[in-house]
Every structure is written in C-alpha cells, then in structure tokens.
Simulated assay, not measured.
Amino acid sequence: MTATGNTDVVARLRAAGCVFAEDEARLLTAAAAETGADLAELVAQRVSGTPLEHLLGWAEFHGLRIAVTAGVFVPRQRTAFLVDEAADLARALPSKHPVVVDMCCGSGALGLALATILASEGHRITLAAADIEPAAVECARRNLTPIGAAVYEGDLFDPLPDELRGRIDILLANTPYVPSEMIAHMPPEARDHEPRTALDGGPDGLDIFRRVVDAARTWLAPGGHLLVESSAAQTPQAITVLTEYGFAGRIAESDELYATVVIGTKPAM
C-alpha cells in the first residue's frame, strides 16, 4: 500500500473513533496482504464496529497469538492479571501435576496462557476447558488441542468428565459479569459482535458467578482455588457469596491493568 493509501486508512479509522488508528491500519494492511482479503472491505467492517481481532483472526494475549473467530469473546488485556495470579497459586500447590480447568473459556486464551507460563518453568498440568457457545468451543479447540487439552461444549460444569470431580486444583472462570441492564451501554464491538452469554451476568452481574461457586464446592480439590474476574464494585457481594459457600475469599487488584480478580480457596482437608 502507498503512503497515501495508508494515510487514508488511518484517517477513516480515526474518524470512526479507533484510538490506536495507526496500529490498526498497519495490522489490517498486513492481514490483507497475508490472506488476500480486500483491505477496503476490512476497513469498512472495522469502521462499522467489527472487533479488530475478528477481522485479523487472532488476538494478542499474554504474549501469545490466540486464534479468535467471529462470534467468539475477545480476550481482554486486563485478564492477563488473572492468569498471573493463577500462575502464582499453581506454583505454590503441593501437587506436582495440577489439574486446571478454564471455565467459560471463550477462545481458551486463559488456559493456554497459564499452561504456557507453567510449561516454561518445567511444570506439567492437566488442562481442560468448557464453554456453552459452539463457536467458542471450536475456536478453543484450535488453540488448545495442540497442547493436549480437551475442550467440552455445555453449560458450566455439565460437560466435564466425572473423573475431574473433586480434583481441580485451579479453576479459571472468566464468567460474564456485566449487569443485564448495562449491556445496551457497552461498545458496539462487544454488544453486537460477542455472544450475550459471554457478557450478561444477570441483574447484578453475579448470576453465573453464584452458580460457579456453588458447583465448585464439589469440583475443586481440597485446597483448590477459584479465580474470577470482577468489577471493583461487585467485590463485596462476591466475597459474601464465597463465604456463604464455605470458601476463603480474597481480592487481588492491578492498578496498571485496571483489573480485579476474586479468589476463593476451598478448605484443605
């Protein structure tokens, strides 16, 4: 593409409100060159609100390129903090071969990132993932099958093999936590292009969280940990829920990533 053409792309993206217009123009131009796609069509879709990651076919997350397809939740950069917290907990586990489950997995980004971190340090894990959305399951299998992780389709714990019951050491659960009435106020690229099941957390944003905590009592191993992303405003309620179900709860926050993670630990026997 000529310098003038690239300038035009940047100008269109900036006019549409893309904060990182220069970076997006570069990525879209490269994607068109690599795939043979029409750059003008890619730009038109981006301007209309299609997530950049859906157009590229991948998202960068925790230093990895994660396959992301249309209709699949795009992993947020702030969620890298949840992965880091999970890695710290996994390192401290007595088990030398912990069992990890990525619940509401979307593309499988969290599970893949955690497995990659721990593998680089010589740790072995058994990883499984699950999601209710068929498109997400297909995408997660693209990302996770190469590392030997199984991905199951179904509602929360329902599709998991019974052999995992009571054996999960680390449960990553990026549950939807946007209150239902706030969905309409989300950016169009999320509201119109990502599955509502990945966004809508019910009236107070904690409906799915409550279901996960309830079931986790059975599925977590003694001393196992549940990690869930949350908004800062929801943390008092979330801690109350964890306490009611017998978990030791705490909050981890990252000012740098504007991230809040609720962590529940099942009592050790």
Rank of each mutant, 00 (worst) to 15 (best):
A40H: 10
P236L: 05
V262F: 09
E181M: 11
V74M: 05
T175F: 01
A233G: 15
A248E: 07
E163W: 13
L82H: 02
A184E: 15
S48V: 11
E181H: 14
E163L: 13
A173H: 02
A130H: 03
A198I: 01
V10W: 06
T126Q: 04
L27V: 07
A33I: 05
N143K: 07
H62I: 07
N143G: 10
E41F: 04
I147Y: 00
A59Q: 01
D8F: 13
A128P: 14
T50P: 00
L82C: 10
R76V: 10
A130I: 02
E24F: 01
S120E: 08
C105Q: 01
R217F: 06
L156C: 09
E189H: 12
R191Y: 10
E244F: 13
A92I: 11
H54R: 07
R217A: 07
G49S: 05
S230F: 08
L226Q: 03
F81S: 07
T79V: 13
V262I: 15
F61M: 08
A37H: 08
I263F: 09
A86Q: 02
Y152A: 06
R76T: 03
H97K: 12
A30R: 12
R26Y: 10
N143M: 04
D155A: 11
L52Y: 02
E53V: 06
T2I: 08
R217E: 10
G5F: 09
L27I: 09
D169V: 06
V83T: 04
S48Y: 10
L56M: 08
A136F: 01
E163C: 13
P187F: 07
T7N: 14
P161A: 05
R250W: 14
P146I: 06
T265S: 10
A238L: 01
L160P: 12
G5D: 11
P188Q: 15
R191G: 05
G224H: 02
A33G: 11
D207P: 04
A136L: 10
C139E: 01
T260P: 03
L39Y: 04
D155P: 13
G63E: 02
D158V: 12
P146R: 05
D204I: 07
L160N: 06
A173G: 06
A268G: 14
D23A: 11
A135Y: 01
E41C: 07
A129Y: 01
A3I: 13
L39H: 06
I183S: 10
D38A: 12
G154Y: 06
V9T: 04
V261H: 05
D214C: 14
Q234C: 13
A221E: 06
L199N: 04
E194P: 02
S254F: 12
G49E: 00
G224M: 00
L89R: 13
G205K: 12
D162R: 15
A248D: 12
I239M: 15
T218F: 14
V213N: 00
R65A: 09
K96F: 12
P75V: 02
I117E: 11
D162L: 15
Y152T: 11
A15K: 10
V137Q: 04
G5I: 13
C105H: 08
P51R: 12
T175E: 02
M186E: 11
K96I: 12
E138D: 13
P176T: 10
R167Y: 12
I239S: 15
G17I: 04
G246K: 01
A135G: 11
C18D: 13
D38N: 13
E121D: 07
A44Y: 06
E189M: 08
A215F: 03
C105G: 07
L93S: 04
H193A: 02
A3R: 15
E138Y: 04
F81Q: 09
A259P: 00
